[in-house]
């Protein structure tokens, strides 16, 4: 049975047929896929097609699920829990809600105005861009299932722990006052099946239109690392034995605004060159969880001390996760 599932995994998720097909076509045009140029071209074509196919299918499926959880419903569900349970539910709901950090600010305002605890809202805010089902399946496709599940697991722990710490800090007065006075609408539109279909289809078009440049750039950089930059150069800078590798990954990744889907091919190429799993995880988390545009937007709704606390907790979490995983990389690869 495991052989059968392995085959399914290889063909549908890793799309080995596509890799073989690209190899076949490149060889037919006289390109040697073992050469650096041929290898780069193969990596680029195969990864771009694979990511776009997976992404379209995944976004459609997840948007369908998401259409059952409009923000009003999420808020009502969260209002029914208290203590750490609320943080856990907040982090879990974050995995099925928006892919984009641009929608998190209206959510923050809506949740806070309705009286949800600050810590619960932050659990949701940390988890929402960081972990989602689409990135889990893409990580499984590019790396493996254990790595994908681990990424989701530590992402959720970071969201729950981060939110809990922020909740304990008693910073309710560090939120701009207009947030508390925003009106709360509880109207929740019921969608028909046709509307869910349209919503899911629109999400696919919209997200693909937004992320395709990041994916092309990401795969391009990945192809470059994969075949042109010597392994010695990469490991000298980011090798597992270098104490600063996780730190460099986080510092480079935090201000970057990119999509997890564009970051994955870079991560894939880096792991192939002997960079530690923890370093790569830290890079992916830093890119997705925090970015300069989202920090600037957050600054409009929360005051500096709370912003610094939020950035500090998330950064510290990413560094801890990175160092822990670098010390146990051998369990996964």
């Amino acid at each position: 049975m495991s052989g059968f599932f392995g085959w399914l995994n290889d063909q549908f998720l890793r799309m080995e047929w596509l890799s073989d097909l690209v190899t076949y076509l490149l060889v037919a045009t006289g390109l040697d896929v073992a050469s650096p140029i041929g290898g780069s071209v193969h990596f680029f074509i195969y990864d771009v097609i694979k990511i776009f196919i997976l992404l379209s299918v995944l976004i459609f499926a997840i948007s369908w699920v998401q259409s059952y959880f409009p923000p009003e419903r999420t808020r009502r569900i969260l209002g029914g829990y208290s203590g750490i349970g609320a943080n856990v539910i907040g982090a879990l709901l974050g995995t099925i809600t928006p892919f984009c950090s641009c929608s998190s600010i209206p959510l923050f305002i809506g949740f806070t105005a309705a009286g949800l605890p600050l810590g619960v809202t932050f659990s949701f805010l940390i988890s929402s861009p960081l972990v989602d089902l689409a990135s889990m399946i893409l990580i499984a496709s590019i790396f493996s299932w254990p790595i994908a599940l681990t990424y989701i697991g530590v992402g959720l722990v970071l969201a729950v722990a981060g939110g809990t710490l922020i909740g304990r800090a008693g910073m309710e007065n560090q939120v701009e006052s207009f947030v508390y006075s925003a009106p709360v609408h509880d109207g929740e539109a019921n969608m028909s099946r046709a509307e869910r279909f349209r919503y899911a289809k629109d999400q696919v078009t919209e997200i693909i239109q937004r992320v395709w440049p990041y994916i092309l750039v990401g795969v391009g950089i990945g192809a470059l690392i994969h075949n042109w930059i010597p392994e010695a150069t990469i490991t000298a800078l980011l090798g597992q034995d270098k104490w600063w590798s996780v730190l460099v990954a986080a510092v480079v990744g935090i201000p970057m605004y990119a999509d997890i889907f564009g970051t994955l091919p870079i991560a894939e190429a880096l792991v192939g060159k002997g960079v530690g799993l923890g370093t790569v995880l830290a890079f992916m988390m830093a890119v997705t969880a925090l970015s300069l545009p989202s920090i600037i937007m957050l600054k409009r709704v929360i005051k500096m001390p709370l912003l610094i606390l939020f950035l500090g907790i998330v950064t510290a979490g990413i560094l801890i996760i990175g160092y822990i995983f670098n010390s146990i990389t051998h369990l996964f690869l």
Binding site: P71, P106, L107, I109, F178, A182, P183, H185, R300, V301
Partner: peptide
Amino acid sequence: DFAQIAGYGVMSTPGLVIDEKLVSSGKV
């Protein structure tokens, strides 16, 4: 502006307001 959007109680954009009454949100 975020503050103004929040003033209508909208959590998912785009929102549609006709004569100061919110009629839809999160949908085109």
